[in-house]
């Protein structure tokens, strides 16, 4: 249900941008879902579709794009994908990463050199890529 909090954050941001543009309606919202956060898409969609009701984004087309998570070791430079190691994580670790992706460092090390010092190159969490609005323009 933490997806509700993120869906609420997305809508608040979309409405804020639309208001700044003096838009009459929001026509499209393009959202990128980073793999690392393991968002339950059905719950997120359900939450967002409920939250937009009664707002100028009510009938907006919501487009989702999934971004694979890629990690890069700061010590040896090795790059690997979250997909390669997700199965090795227990449920507790996966849930913790779902809430706060950065706690990944508590549970995973570089598969080559064993360092916990690595960057998430892409695919961390939820981002708004773009929105399309009707009307407005300052």
């Amino acid at each position: 249900m933490h997806e509700w909090a993120l869906a609420e954050a997305v809508l608040t941001t979309v409405l804020d941008i639309a208001a700044k543009e003096n838009a009459e309606k929001v026509l499209e919202i393009n959202i990128v879902m980073g793999e690392l956060q393991q968002i339950d898409m059905e719950t997120f969609k359900f939450a967002l579709e409920n939250l937009v009701k009664g707002t100028i984004a009510e009938n907006a087309r919501i487009v989702f794009e999934t971004e694979k998570a890629v990690l890069k070791c700061n010590v040896c430079g090795y790059e690997w994908s979250f997909g390669e190691i997700i199965e090795k994580l227990d449920e507790e670790a996966r849930e913790a990463i779902h809430f706060i992706p950065e706690v990944f460092h508590a549970y995973i090390a570089c598969p080559v050199c064993g360092s916990r010092d690595f960057d998430v190159v892409r695919g961390r969490g939820v981002y708004i890529k773009s929105i399309k609005v009707l009307g407005g323009g300052k």
């Binding site: 909090a5 809430f99 706690v103 010092d117």
Partner: peptide, 27 residues
């Protein structure tokens, strides 16, 4: 953060500290 990192060390770099704070504040 202890609820999520448990007893493990959590080596974070600057941007990640910010990201974790923002996430906690947002949810």
């Amino acid at each position: 953060i202890i609820f999520f990192a448990k007893e493990e060390p959590l080596p974070l770099r600057g941007k990640e500290v910010s990201d974790a704070i923002i996430e906690l504040m947002a949810i």
